[in-house]
Amino acid sequence: MQNYLPILLIFALATTYGLWYQSSRGRIKEKKSARPALTAHDVGEEFGSRATFVQFSSAFCTPCRATRALLTDITADLSDVKYIDIDAEKNLELVRKLDIRSTPTTLILNGAGQEIGRAVGAPKRAEILATLGAIR
């Protein structure tokens, strides 16, 4: 019996963490900051007039590819929304400043460059569209 107790404990803890991990991945967390999170100078590209998606990626991350495909697709027909993909490892200073901990992390900026939300993990299309729709 004493051998089974640790096993039960391990599975209980891992399942709790796993459920949290699964439900939090890709969720857009709203953020309200008055200051611009980024300037066009930081990322070396002009922002979109309505919104900008800034994705932080790393070389061998699988969900980064899915995120890239999704955001490229969503922004393709929108002239006022821009999509910028940043290599996290080559921009560690920016990564530290914005406290990016894993890839992909996608920041959603409004026209003024203020961060209004961020998603860790591959975001869902419906949620991205809803957030975008709320930006005027």
């Binding site: 796993g18 459920l19 991990y21 699964q22 790393s58 061998f60 991350c61 699988t62 969900p63 996290a88 490892e89 560690l92 990564v95 990016i100 901990r101 894993s102 890839t103």
Partner: peptide, 14 residues
């Protein structure tokens, strides 16, 4: 849960 340890650790290590 398709949890990927290498993916989570990668950027932190970098």
């Amino acid at each position: 849960f398709n949890f990927c340890l290498g993916c989570e650790m990668y950027l932190l290590i970098a």
